[in-house]
Design a protein around this nucleic acid. Structure first.
Length: 420
RNA sequence: GGCGAGGUUGCGGAGCGGUCAAACGCAACAGACUGUAAAUCUGUCGCCCUAGCGGCUUCGGAGGUUCGAAUCCUCCCCUCGCCA
């Protein structure tokens, strides 16, 4: 990894790829130039919630942008906003969150590290906690900080503006919140701050406040929200349209292959390091019929899996996918489930429920009626199908994706199976 | 504090005494077609079983009226508008 690759124009293109806002491009360019001249890397700040992080690809858009700066030799500060976490939730509306303990915060920080370093270079990443300096501020420091901004500026934020216009209350501490974030930038002397588009206002407050502390304003850059697997909603855990970065390679690859062709290009842009020109070229080739979209998607899948696992794992995942879905074979590693069978035998529908392939007997029966259930490859349409108490192991499939090897166990002899 | 609207099956949203397990749309799931893509078409979408013009439990909560209630009455809980 060379420390300063490419011309300034190339660096700019790399860093601003996929970004929504850049305030301002000219300043970023100047800072890059300066950094190169003085051989002093830029300090790039990004704040994160201290609440339990379980990252999915949506979060990695921002993390990847951090990586881009690292790739060009800059230093990234991974800032954990534990100050507010220690105090409890500050933003009115929502029900007060119980404050996190120091232990919880540290534990969450470790979880962050474990996930985030799949993309980031630990040597160029500084993990910080803002309680370190915010907790040490004296009353006069707070007043000085508050003096660096004014109400009119605060009301530029749409959320505040609306509430103010409607006569809804805005507590003073809500104004303090963006200011503390701004103070983080002051303390770190950040050159650049990155965040999601929803953070634009807060990031700009930092930019505005810094000159009052004799610092040049930070450059602000925002990245967009990633659209989830469904191609409609933003990726989120609650919507269920996400790909977790700790998911196993096969699962990850499978999910990636299920996205629509249209969505693929946005993911190429936001989830890979490929330059835009390269992506446009691929897209043109697909448009011209020169490259099959499925191939383009497989390439994308392999890249992403490689980022969070390894090149080998990615290749294997692709092969397994081909084998299984294009070739119609069973997965090479079948999960096994022991199922207790009473002397009277077991109904197929009950087995489906026990194995977790159906939520209820009724649901299982419907699936059988619809012809989606196979036992050892044979389609079963008899809703009353049962297995004798002495049945041997068999492969149970429901739909295309759900497969398991069922190991029948006679009831009574062994202790009831332990669930994990 | 005063006035008004409303809480229905994952979401949105009908229903306003029986024919309601509850229209319709979305989401989801399955089948067909495919590139496990999208689109499209078809079906399913409370639970139980001996699977039937079957049984059971649902329409914020608790009571009540009625042969019969998601639909009417009483009380309670909650949400959302408007006024101070």
């Amino acid at each position: 990894m060379s420390s300063m690759p490419g011309t300034l124009a190339e660096q700019m293109a790399y860093l601003t790829k996929g970004a929504v806002d850049v305030v301002r491009g000219s300043e970023l360019r100047a800072k890059l130039e300066q950094a190169a001249g003085k051989e002093r890397p830029l300090v790039v700040k990004v704040g994160f919630d201290p609440t339990a992080p379980d990252l999915h690809l949506g979060h990695t858009v921002l993390i990847r942008k951090m990586k881009h700066f690292q790739d060009l030799g800059h230093t990234v500060v991974f800032l954990i906003g534990d100050f507010t976490g220690l105090i409890g939730d500050p933003t009115g509306r929502s029900k007060a969150r119980p404050p996190l303990t120091r232990d919880e915060i540290d534990q969450n920080a470790d979880t962050y590290r474990a996930q985030v370093f799949k993309l980031l270079d630990p040597d160029r990443t500084v993990v910080e906690f803002n309680s370190r300096w915010l907790g040490a501020l004296r009353s006069e420091d707070w007043i000085r900080l508050a003096a660096s901004y004014n109400v009119a500026q605060m009301l530029e934020r749409r959320h505040f503006r609306q509430r103010y216009d409607r006569g809804q209350p805005i507590a003073i501490h809500e104004f303090l919140y963006p200011l503390t974030q701004a103070f983080d930038s002051v303390h770190l002397a950040a050159d650049v701050e990155l965040g999601g588009t929803d953070q634009l206002f807060n990031l700009n407050v930092g930019r505005d406040v810094m000159p009052s502390f004799d610092l040049p304003p930070q450059v602000v850059m925002t990245v967009p929200l990633l659209v989830g697997l469904d191609g409609a909603e933003k990726m989120s855990k609650s919507a269920g349209n996400y790909v977790g970065i700790t998911e196993p390679p096969n699962e990850m690859f499978g999910k990636l292959m299920s996205i629509s062709d249209a969505l693929m290009w946005s993911w190429y842009e936001l989830l890979t390091d490929l330059p835009m020109v390269e992506i446009e070229r691929l897209r043109a080739r697909v448009g011209a019929g020169d490259l099959h979209p499925k191939q383009a998607k497989q390439d994308l899948g392999r890249r992403i899996v490689a980022d969070f696992h390894s090149d080998d794992a990615a290749v294997l995942a692709e092969r397994e996918f081909e084998r299984r879905f294009t070739g119609g074979a069973l997965p090479s590693e079948l999960e096994e489930r022991a199922v207790v069978v009473r002397p009277a035998g077991a109904r197929l529908s009950a087995v489906m429920v026990e194995v977790g392939f159906a939520g209820s007997n009724s649901a299982a029966t419907r699936l059988i009626d619809q012809g989606s259930v196979r036992v050892d490859g044979e389609r079963i349409v008899d809703r009353g199908a049962r297995f004798p108490p002495d049945a041997g192991p068999f492969v149970l499939q429901v739909g295309k994706r759900r497969v398991v090897r069922v190991i029948p166990r006679p009831a009574g002899r062994e202790p009831v199976e332990v669930k994990k």
